[in-house]
């Protein structure tokens, strides 16, 4: 039997302890052990961004991150992003028509939450740069970028 090791981390604000094998990825733990299947498996090699989660607030590809390295860290998945900013991003993407098949959407929302926490008012160039690691084969990105610009302008108007 393969040896496992307990890892304790904060996942979506709650302390969780899970058993991890060797170099098992954070994505597999989230999906298969914590049943947080909103984090999607795309390429499994860190190229498509579908598995993006926030690790201590920073966007990372969970498919390539060693779960044991997450000991004591704070992880946020799409299921946990219910703060006001994340909700504005989700609503704006829906209203702009930024979803077609939807497979990339969780990763994109997580990435954009990470972006807007770090940069309150990104311009289009920065938004596109930030999204460059999230592959969407349906929308062509234009509606998604429009949605983020709308959130940024809405924020500016509200302040």
């Amino acid at each position: 039997m393969t040896e496992t090791h307990p890892v304790t981390a904060t996942v979506n604000g709650r302390e969780e302890t899970f058993e991890v094998e060797g170099l098992e990825s954070l994505m597999d733990v989230l999906r298969d052990k914590l049943h947080l299947s909103g984090t999607k498996e795309g390429c499994r090699e860190g190229e498509c961004g579908a598995c993006t989660v926030l690790l201590d607030g920073k966007p990372v590809n969970s498919c390539g991150y060693i779960a044991r390295a997450a000991e004591g860290r704070e992880i946020e998945t799409i299921e946990g992003l219910n703060d006001a900013l994340s909700m504005r991003i989700k609503t704006a993407i829906v209203e702009a028509g930024g979803i077609q098949c939807g497979y990339c959407t969780p990763g994109i929302v997580v990435m954009l939450s990470g972006l807007l926490r770090r940069h309150a008012a990104p311009d289009e160039r920065l938004i596109r740069q930030a999204l460059s690691g999230n592959i969407c084969r349906c929308t062509g990105y234009a509606q998604i970028v429009d949605a983020v610009l709308g959130v940024v302008q809405g924020k500016a108007a509200a302040e």
């Binding site: 860190g46 990372v60 991150y65 930030a130 690691g133």
Partner: peptide, 9 residues
């Protein structure tokens, strides 16, 4: 180098 998800770590 890669995307932001790679550059973060």
């Amino acid at each position: 180098c890669g995307g932001w998800q790679t550059q973060s770590i």
